[in-house]
Nucleic acid binder design. Structure first.
Length: 369
DNA sequence: AATCGCGTCAACCGCGCGGAG
DNA sequence: CCTCCGCGCGGTTGACGCGAT
C-alpha cells in the first residue's frame, strides 16, 4: 500500500459537500486566499482534509469556472489537444478557460470517446480503426430501412452494383447481418444486404485504409471501392494525394463532379457523399498547414439533407455549416455528421467543403469518411 | 409503483514531482 | 545529494437521476 488516505484519521468528513461547508470554504479563501491546503481546513473551521478542500475549490467553487455544456469549439479543441497531449487533462484544461481538468476528463470519457469510437476512430491514437466501428449499429439501421426489400445471395454481393468488397470483410458484414436481421421470408443462405449497407461498409473500410496503408490487404487494387455516383477510383493514401493549392487557385466555391478548371483543384476526395437514404453519416476532415479562413460545408441539394453539422451538433441550416480556421494553429480537424432525407431520385447528395477568405499560404485538406 | 440499467459527474485515491531544508 | 512534505495529476469509484420495462 502507498500512503494512507488523508481523510481517514481524526474523524475528517468525506463525501458530498454541504452548502454550509461550501460557504465556509469560499469565505475563507476570499478573505485569505488559497494555498497551504493542509492547514486551510483547520483555519476555516472545516472537518475536511486539505486535499478535499482543494478539489472542491478548483473543480467546483472557483469563481471563474464556466458552467454548462461544452460548445462545439471547446469539444473540437479538446479533441485536437488530446491528439497532441494525450491524457494530460490539466494541460488541456489550461487551454480552455473556465474548464477544469476533471470536467474535461469526464466529458472525454462520457461523450467524446464514445463518439470517436462510433466513428471508428481510436480515441487513444486518433486514427481510424475498422475493428472499432460499430458495424452492427449501422447495419441494423440500414436493414431496417423501409426500402430494404431486396435480398441477394451473399457470393453475388461481392460485385453488387459495381461495389467490390474483399471476401473476408464481406464475411464480417454477413455474420452481422445473418446473426440477427434475417428476414423470415428469406430463403436459407440468403442475406439482406443493400447497396447502401455495402456503401457504408466501404466508406468505413476506406477510412481504415487511408490511415493504415498496411491494411491494404483489405483492398486489393482490383477491389478498390467506387463512389456510387461516378465510379471514380478513390485515391490511395499517401501525402501526395492530399489536396493542395495556393491562394490564386482556390476557387471561391468548390464544386464536386462539375467542370473543374485545370488550375482548380480536384476535390473529389474531400467531398462527402451521403448515401441514398436514411443513414447517419460522419467523417473527419483533417486540415493541415492552413493559414486562416472560413471552412464551409455546403450541400449540393438542400432538399435531400435533413441536417448536418460540424461536430456532434446539427446546425439549423440544412444547406451549410461553417468553421473559422484559426491562424495560430498548424493543424486542425473538422468533424462532420449528418443524415439525409428520403431521396426520390436515388442519387444521394454531396456535402462539399469550401474555403473562403483564405490567407495566401498553401494548405492541405484531406477528407476521410 | 417498483425495479433495473445506464449515463453522468463530483469526489476520492494513490502516485509522482518538485521545492525546501 | 538525500529526505520530507505539499501539491497536483490521472484513474477510479459511487451516488444520483432518469428513462425503460
Amino acid at each position: 500500500m502507498g500512503k494512507s488516505p488523508c481523510c481517514d484519521k481524526n474523524g475528517l468528513k468525506k463525501g458530498p459537500w454541504t452548502a454550509e461547508e461550501d460557504k465556509k470554504l469560499v469565505e475563507y479563501i476570499q478573505k485569505h486566499g488559497h494555498g497551504k491546503w493542509r492547514t486551510l481546513p483547520r483555519n476555516a473551521g472545516l472537518k475536511r482534509c486539505g486535499k478535499s478542500c482543494r478539489l472542491r475549490w478548483t473543480n467546483y467553487l472557483r469563481p471563474d469556472i464556466k458552467r454548462g455544456r461544452f460548445t462545439f469549439e471547446e469539444e473540437e479543441a479538446i479533441i485536437q489537444l488530446h491528439g497532441v497531449l494525450g491524457n494530460k487533462w490539466s494541460a488541456i484544461a489550461a487551454q480552455l478557460p473556465g474548464r477544469t481538468d476533471n470536467e474535461i476528463k469526464n466529458y472525454w470519457n462520457t461523450h467524446i470517446k464514445k463518439r470517436l469510437l462510433k466513428m471508428g476512430i481510436d480515441p487513444v491514437t486518433h486514427a481510424p480503426r475498422l475493428d472499432l466501428l460499430d458495424l452492427s449499429s449501422f447495419l441494423t439501421s440500414s436493414l431496417h430501412a423501409h426500402y430494404c426489400s431486396q435480398f441477394m445471395n451473399a457470393p453475388n454481393a461481392l460485385n453488387m452494383n459495381g461495389y467490390a468488397v474483399s471476401p473476408d470483410l464481406l464475411d464480417l458484414a454477413t455474420t452481422l447481418c445473418s446473426s440477427s436481421f434475417k428476414s423470415p421470408e428469406a430463403p436459407q443462405n440468403v442475406l439482406e444486404i443493400t447497396p447502401q449497407v455495402l456503401e457504408q461498409f466501404q466508406y468505413s473500410l476506406l477510412a481504415n485504409q487511408l490511415h493504415n496503408p498496411l491494411n491494404n490487404a483489405h483492398f486489393p487494387n482490383e477491389n478498390r471501392p467506387m463512389h456510387s455516383n461516378n465510379a471514380r477510383e478513390i485515391p490511395p493514401s499517401n501525402p501526395s494525394n492530399f489536396v493542395s493549392c495556393h491562394q490564386n487557385s482556390i476557387p471561391s466555391y468548390w464544386q464536386a463532379d462539375g467542370d473543374i478548371q485545370p488550375q482548380h483543384i480536384n476535390i473529389d476526395e474531400t467531398s462527402v457523399s451521403l448515401p441514398n437514404h436514411g443513414f447517419d453519416v460522419s467523417c473527419r476532415f483533417n486540415i493541415d498547414h492552413f493559414s486562416s479562413g472560413h471552412l464551409v460545408f455546403q450541400s449540393n441539394d438542400a432538399n435531400k439533407v435533413q441536417n448536418f453539422g460540424l461536430g456532434s451538433s446539427s446546425l439549423s441550416s440544412p444547406m451549410s455549416s461553417s468553421l473559422t480556421l484559426n491562424s495560430s494553429s498548424t493543424t486542425s480537424a473538422a468533424y462532420l455528421s449528418g443524415c439525409n432525407k428520403e431521396d426520390r431520385d436515388g442519387h444521394g447528395c454531396h456535402i462539399m467543403p469550401s474555403l473562403y477568405d483564405a490567407a495566401p499560404n498553401s494548405f492541405y485538406v484531406n477528407g476521410i469518411m
